[in-house]
Design a protein around this nucleic acid. Sequence first.
DNA 1: GCGACAG
DNA 2: ATCTTGTCGC
Length: 198
Amino acid sequence: MVEKHLLEFLEKLQFLISRNINIEHYGIEKIKRICGVDVAYKGNIGFSVAVSMDVSTEEYQYKSYSGEVSFPYIPGFLFMREAPIMMKAIEGLECDLLLVDGHGLAHPRKSGIATVIGVLLDFPTIGVAKSRLAGELITEGDIVYVYLGGQKVGVKFGRFFYSPGNKVDLQDCIDLGRRGYPKVLKIADMLTKKLKKE
DNA sequence: GCGACAG
DNA sequence: ATCTTGTCGC
């Protein structure tokens, strides 16, 4: 159980982080290497895997980290549970853009796990989630947007949600989403589950 | 009070 | 996320 005063404190940190987001166009086409990070669990042990892949050759390398995870999963506070071990797995890998399993701006306080990691590392990140956390879906033309507080904070392609973490913009999310579910995340998910079995 | 709720 | 077999559908 997590005390109310701690969550209120964490909310303040999230507002601080959200005020430090840099929304700017990156340009998906300029990416040489792309990274993806995911986590799987076996009881209270978390296994995180970060995959770095060359966009043109699809050659990839990965790094993993495992350790006890004590913070519980609380909607809106996923970063406290997974960001620490995700960042350990990412450490040392080289890439231009990092994809995080979870939301970025499409969060109640515009501070999803992809945003937290992006701001802490001062690095370009995009959150890719499998389900909605906040906001409403509005279709405009051929794009389904996630609206929150009257502004577009993400997009939905197929069954996946893409939202800016840091140093990218909605257009980058659209360009990424149109390419289908990122291979690096698929590989990271696969490795993460394989790792916890051994 | 009730429903919603990333992984 | 995880617990879990077969099964309906593209």
